[in-house]
């Protein structure tokens, strides 16, 4: 499971310090899909990077299974899987070659890798284009290869960063089905997205992130009670309005 405790992170843009995260805390349990929601620039990707141990937080920590992630200790990375919206494929390699390469990067044996490849090829319907160069694949096919890449080492914790961006309905549905499958297998899934309608469909709990602050956390019912609004989109708009009013009331800290 994932425990995020009071994460603070500042970036320097020129001479200005921009606070990307300002005391973010939440927990994701095994077998649960947690939706980290927020507009662009809310701090979702920064949170994911701290969890992966790519960035050191200024304060707070991220724990996976009781161990803190850190850039100096890449060990935890084999327990994490990541599928990101920016992920790409190797155009000159076939999906099979690419997936086997990542199996090597995760220290899997050849037999393990072959078995895993068969399982994933069946579940994500990759067989038809397994030996075709990735450069010739359609967007949906590529996204399935990327999903397979993130799951190749069968991690207990899965981080998904806007996995459906650029996908059509069929492609998105493949991703949703897969998230369901992960949940069924007891994985802790952290889904970061700004597609609120999708999130409503697949997430068990939500965290609404705005300007580095986690405004609300809870299940959809809990959020409805707290905010008095029916849909996530309305909750978000209300949240942003309130934040804007607060900002106008007090001078901006920078």
């Amino acid at each position: 499971m994932i425990i995020i405790h009071h994460l603070v992170k500042e970036f320097r843009v020129g001479r200005r310090a921009v606070r990307a995260l300002d005391g973010v805390s939440f927990t994701v349990h095994p077998g649960e899909v947690f939706g980290l929601l927020g507009p662009n620039g809310a701090g979702k990707t920064t949170t994911l990077r701290i969890i992966m141990g790519l960035i050191e937080p200024d304060a707070g920590f991220a724990e996976i299974g009781g161990y803190r992630s850190s850039p100096d200790d890449p060990h935890l990375r084999s327990h994490l899987g990541l599928v990101s919206t920016n992920d790409g494929v190797y155009p000159w390699l076939t999906p099979r070659e690419m997936l086997l390469y990542f199996a090597d990067l995760y220290g899997m044996t050849w037999q393990q890798a072959q078995q895993r490849l068969d399982v994933l090829a069946e579940r994500l319907a990759l067989q038809a284009f397994m030996d075709q160069r990735c450069g010739t694949l359609s967007t949906g096919q590529r996204q399935r290869v990327i999903l397979a890449r993130g799951l190749m080492h069968d991690p207990p914790v899965m981080l998904l960063d806007e996995p459906t961006r650029g996908l059509d309905i069929v492609g998105s549905q493949t991703v949703f089905d897969f998230i369901d499958h992960l949940k069924g297998r007891g994985k802790a899934v952290l889904l970061s997205t700004h597609r609120l309608d999708e999130a409503e469909r697949i997430c068990d709990r939500f965290g609404l992130l705005h300007q580095g602050n986690l405004m609300y956390t809870g299940t959809l019912d809990q959020l409805r009670k707290k905010t008095g609004k029916e849909h996530l989109a309305d909750m978000f708009l209300g949240m942003m309005e309130r934040a804007q009013q607060e900002n106008e009331g007090q001078p901006c800290h920078q």
Binding site: L54, R77, L82, G88, R149
Partner: peptide, 18 residues
Amino acid sequence: ERGTMEALVIAPTPSWVI
């Protein structure tokens, strides 16, 4: 540029080996 770098650096294999 292809977007494969992040997947490489989050793998547990040290980047110098890659």
